[in-house]
Amino acid sequence: MPNNGRNPMTINDLRKEVEAWRKQKPVNESVLLFLKSPVDRAGALIFFVILVLTLVFVPVFELIRLVILRPIFSLFHTIVVLIAAIFLRITARPLIRLGIKAIKNKEQKRFSRFFYTHFPGFLRFFVRCFGPSLKFYLKIDTKDVRSIGKFQEWVDDTLGVEGIWVESDVNRAVRRETWCPFAGREIPYVSGAGQESRVSNPGESLKSDGTEFCSYFMAGWLNDFVRYCNPEFEIAPVNRMIPKGDEFCEFIWRRKNAW
């Protein structure tokens, strides 16, 4: 609905509103007169107490936080993120291979079924362990979906994926991955994909369909991180992917619900 069911306001409406307001325009009173209602007295008392406390303690806490705690936290979170990056770098290829096999054999083999069912849980565990440090390290603003999207940038930088942001708004951000080191090797693609000419030895895995790895595991992982940062946002279902024959993989970060 274009106007959300509300009538647009005209200048005459505003004039009437202001005219009505001018007749009973609020005026300044003495502070003592202002405190005549019990609510205002209670509010003023609470405010005064908190004001004194904040004026005394907040500068002290801020100095301690900025001079002592922040450098300590920075060091700690940087080390944790470094560990996460090394872990990801080492385990990415084997996990992707396992994931592709699990997707292919999930109906037949027990281990594949187990892996297919529980791998998202493991990725969620990763987010739970490293999420706070990544949030601190990447300086993520949880109200801004583009800022949350720095996580994908970090994953890409760690794994050697190339991509660009084509949309960067606080409510919607779109990232296109133009080069993936796994596409064509671990993750097969159909003939004619944009990246095909750049891979010399595609490997045997080309015989199976691996698009589900990105659309299910990878997008699910990103979704876990988004949900951890701000449940208002989500990753849209991934439709355009290099393994499907597109020029790029497109990840859309967006608001989940209407305002």
């Binding site: 609510v39 509010g43 405010f47 908190i50 904040t54 907040v58 500068p59 801020e62 100095l63």
Partner: peptide, 24 residues
């Protein structure tokens, strides 16, 4: 008006520190 003040009054201590330091 009191809830409005409640949301921002934590800021007032930092405001005092801000008088002393531009950088802060």
């Amino acid at each position: 008006h009191w809830p409005i003040l409640w949301r921002t009054q934590w800021y007032w201590g930092s405001l005092a520190l801000g008088i002393l330091s531009n950088t802060y």
